[in-house]
């Protein structure tokens, strides 16, 4: 684990120390959904939380938003403990909900205008509508929007208050590829404007495209952290050379792929069928990270209740 240290004061938007959140399970016992989590997110950074379903991503983000009460540890978002924080704190954060179907009978501009009144320095409604690409839909009833338009409205509702920190929980689930790319542009624009962005996602390409840093959570703990092209360390990124010859298919992991290719091809004089040099993608690295934890067995027994690591909590099953 490579947690950043020695951050200058004021440089961190979010700090989490030894965060613990337990859920009671229907069968009795408790599940440590978040288990002594350490996390630091710098101001202005776009940070992606990855992890399998039930790993504790949504629980963590909901605690950061102030929507859940932590059972232990210390949480600071913009220097404030988010649980039961005053309105002045809520004015500085923006939340894009994972699933929302509210306000269906309102028009787009009404929903945004109404929410804007809750904030001291809201963005102009027309500006936000244009930014999320909902121009022309101002007067549409929200219930008539398509899935992608609805999610963009959710983002619009999240940024209307000019937040310093924006939370996005699986923002592009159900998007078509074009809508996803437009959405990424929107997030990049917000990020380059200085907004600290925390997002959870199941899409590795999304994290790779957007995030300055990625944190991988499993069993409620941060198991790896780093820039998209560095996370997991060099050991998980050693290239593989694959080829076929008269004796069959070969795959070799090597730090020196060029030398190997040169060797097996007789210095380039012999073409080999199916020759390829593969550098592990973020997805490969991620799967190895998750897999290595599964193979290593459950975390220390005192951290979780009986049977807790095998079964995910049912209410978190589809949420992560």
């Amino acid at each position: 684990m490579n947690l950043p240290s020695g951050q200058r004061p004021g440089g961190d938007a979010i700090t989490v120390r030894n965060l613990v959140k337990n859920y009671r399970q229907p069968a009795g016992g408790t599940l440590a959904a978040v288990d002594r989590l350490q996390l630091t997110i710098r101001a202005g950074e776009t940070y992606a939380l990855l992890g399998p379903n039930g790993a504790g991503k949504s629980t963590t983000i909901e605690i950061l938003e102030g929507h859940r009460r932590p059972d232990g540890g210390e949480v600071r978002v913009l220097g404030t403990n988010p649980w039961k924080a005053p309105p002045a704190f809520r004015a500085r954060i923006g939340i894009v909900l994972q699933e929302a179907s509210d306000a269906g009978e309102l028009r787009v501009h009404e929903a945004l205008g109404s929410l804007a009144r809750c904030f001291p320095e809201p963005r102009p409604v027309a500006e936000v509508i244009a930014a999320v690409g909902l121009g022309g839909k101002e007067a549409a009833r929200i219930s008539t929007l398509s899935g992608g338009q609805r999610r963009r409205l959710d983002v619009a509702l999240g940024i209307i208050g000019r937040p310093e920190v924006l939370f996005l929980d699986e923002p592009t689930t159900g998007f078509d590829p074009a809508a996803r790319r437009q959405f990424w542009d929107l997030i990049r624009t917000l990020g380059s404007g200085g907004t600290t962005i925390v997002l959870t996602t199941h899409y590795l390409d999304e994290a790779e495209q957007l995030a300055d840093r990625i944190g991988v959570i499993n069993h409620g703990r941060l198991i790896a952290e780093g820039a998209p092209d560095q996370i997991g360390g060099s050991a998980l990124r050693i290239p593989r050379v694959r080829w076929r010859d008269s004796s069959g298919f070969h795959e070799q992991i090597t730090e020196h792929p060029a030398a190997l290719v040169s060797e097996i091809s007789g210095g380039g004089s012999r073409e080999l069928p199916e020759l390829s040099v593969i550098r592990p993608s973020l997805e490969d690295v991620y799967l190895q990270l998750i897999g290595s934890v599964e193979e290593a067995g459950p975390p220390p027994a005192e951290a979780a209740g009986p049977g807790a690591t095998a079964a995910e909590p049912s209410r978190e099953g589809v949420r992560s």
């Binding site: 938003e65 102030g66 929507h67 309105p87 002045a88 809520r90 004015a91 954060i93 939340i95 909900l97 699933e99 929302a100 179907s101 509210d102 306000a103 929410l115 809750c118 904030f119 001291p120 509702l157 208050g161």
Partner: peptide
């Protein structure tokens, strides 16, 4: 309905008292 469709959660995430 507003407890379950996200209205209360959304509003409680803003400064709205």
């Amino acid at each position: 309905t507003e407890r379950f469709n996200g209205t209360v959660k959304r509003l409680a995430g803003t400064p709205l008292p």
